[in-house]
Design a protein around this nucleic acid. Structure first.
Length: 170
DNA sequence: AACACGATTTCG
DNA sequence: GAAATCGTGTTT
């Protein structure tokens, strides 16, 4: 069992937090006491209002406000009429950045892993530093990883389409 | 109040 | 390649 990641980890720039989450253990505890531990294998960084692919590019709304808060909370949003996406807020208060969790060793795809974990709107704003039902624990050593352009953000235009802000564990 | 669209997945 | 399906932001 590793130590839970601290507030200071999440308060770093998203370009450090996104790759930094690779290889770490995402822990989920259900109401009945059952516990699951999953290795995070793929993430993507969304970086502030200037990033046209980031939901914060349209400013603060009820949906995006948690991204403007302190790092370490969950930003959940619903898309395509059927999927909840799970994001980890990075950086400090006032800096809207988030990491989309795209894959776990046990489940590839952001829409599939939230179904596996059974997390939805009820986890909007959940604090990974203090929650008793979901958090992240540190693995022994950081894994090697590769990078690439983010998925499904063609509408964002250049240079955002080509930013290598997708991180995959080898 | 109505409308357009999306950080996806699955099936043909 | 297209459908499924609805919350959110924008427009009326």
């Amino acid at each position: 069992m590793g130590d839970r990641l601290t507030r200071d980890f999440y308060r770093q720039d998203v370009l450090r937090v996104a790759p930094g989450l690779l290889g770490q253990y995402l822990v989920r505890v259900w109401p009945d006491g059952r516990q699951g531990r999953y290795v995070i294998t793929e993430t993507e960084a969304y970086r502030g209002e200037e990033d046209r692919a980031c939901h914060a590019c349209r400013g603060k709304t009820r949906r995006t406000e948690v991204m403007y808060g302190d790092g370490g909370k969950l930003y959940m949003y619903f898309i395509y009429g059927m999927y909840w996406m799970m994001n980890v807020v990075a950086a400090q208060e006032g800096v809207p950045q988030a990491v989309l969790i795209r894959g776990l060793r046990e489940a590839g795809g952001p829409g599939k892993l939230t179904r596996l974990l059974e997390v939805d709107r009820a986890f909007y704003g959940e604090d990974l530093v203090t929650s008793d039902r979901i958090w992240v624990e540190e693995s022994v050593h950081p894994p090697e990883f590769t990078t690439g352009p983010r998925i499904g953000i063609q509408y964002a235009g250049q240079p955002w389409i080509d930013m290598p802000w997708r991180f995959l564990m080898r």
